[in-house]
């Protein structure tokens, strides 16, 4: 079980284990992490859901977010399911950073073997990666569908961190308010999809190719995070977005701090939605704000 997009599902599958990307649904009253001031609701919900998970062999977290790094500390004390912390470098321009990520994937592989998985052959990994390329990645990890962009509503991009299950309602509300989401640039959307694998490199060294492709996923956590802006610079016009909704959870510093910069950079109308993760995306207040925002785009 994992949630961070820097955890390659194919690597878990190649070890004979079933990858499950957890998109948490907050459990009211869950006690693995009681609600704590300053704690990101997504991190808390992930911890609570992961702890409540039955038939979970292992949990993989990453260092891409400091709160999740610290959730790992708590989980190893509170639950018996083995947990693994994957070190995802924040920097990316050096030769050493992707190499560290590759080494971390190898270490993850050893963890998976300890969980009862089998060490994959190159051929097996390559086959799984090819299958993933052929199939729709959304189908296997259960995250949000890619927006179809069809219809006549005002075209809107949604940008930000991951969305919890209940916050998926945001897409419906935008539609009901006369808009349509043409780009899902959240962590649980298109932005975090790995690029297609290169078949030649995949044959030569599939793990290296896997690491290279996943390491290139653009994210707000990268320093500097210019690749995120490069990706948006390509995708926003391609999708025809006329406005941007930035969604983040309270206490998510990285997305929170990015709003003003994104606004200065995008030259598009922007709406910020911060959520406490209690399903308030469906509240009349948020609905009104979205409605007003969409109206300005028409």
């Amino acid at each position: 079980m994992y949630t961070c997009p820097y955890v390659p599902a194919q690597w878990i599958a190649a070890h004979g284990l079933q990858p499950h990307r957890l998109i948490p649904a907050p459990i009211e009253g869950a006690s693995t992490i009681p609600r704590i001031e300053g704690l990101c609701p997504y991190a808390r919900a992930f911890a609570n859901d992961a702890a409540a998970g039955v038939e979970v062999t292992g949990i993989v977290l990453t260092t891409a977010c400091d709160q999740m790094r610290r959730v790992f500390d708590l989980l190893v004390h509170r639950i018996e399911t083995p947990a693994f912390l994957l070190n995802v470098p924040s920097t990316w321009q050096t030769v050493a950073a992707p190499r560290l990520y590759l080494d971390e994937l190898k270490r993850l592989g050893r963890f998976l073997v300890r969980l009862g998985g089998r060490e994959p052959s190159k051929e097996e990994l390559a086959r799984i990666m090819l299958d993933a390329t052929a199939s729709h990645p959304r189908d296997e990890d259960g995250v949000h569908g890619i927006p179809c962009g069809c219809g006549s509503g005002a075209p809107v991009a949604v940008v930000g961190g991951p969305l919890m299950q209940r916050d998926r309602v945001l897409f419906d509300i935008v539609h009901e308010c006369g808009g349509r989401i043409v780009l899902d640039a959240t962590e649980t959307g298109q932005r975090s999809l790995p690029a297609p694998f290169d078949r030649r490199r995949l044959t030569d060294d599939p793990l290296l190719e896997l690491a290279q492709v996943y390491f290139q996923i653009p994210d707000v956590s990268r320093r500097p995070n210019g690749e995120l802006y490069r990706w948006l610079a390509a995708e926003l016009p391609r999708a025809g977005a006329r406005g941007v909704i930035l969604h983040h959870y309270v206490w998510c510093d990285k997305w929170h701090a990015e709003f003003e910069r994104l606004k200065e950079w995008a030259h598009l109308p922007m709406l910020r939605l911060d959520s406490e993760g209690r399903g308030e995306m469906d509240s009349p207040r948020v609905r009104n704000r979205i409605h007003a925002f969409v109206e300005t785009l028409r």
Partner: peptide
Amino acid sequence: DDFSAIAQR
């Protein structure tokens, strides 16, 4: 994260 975000800003 807070410092990292501030430095990025």
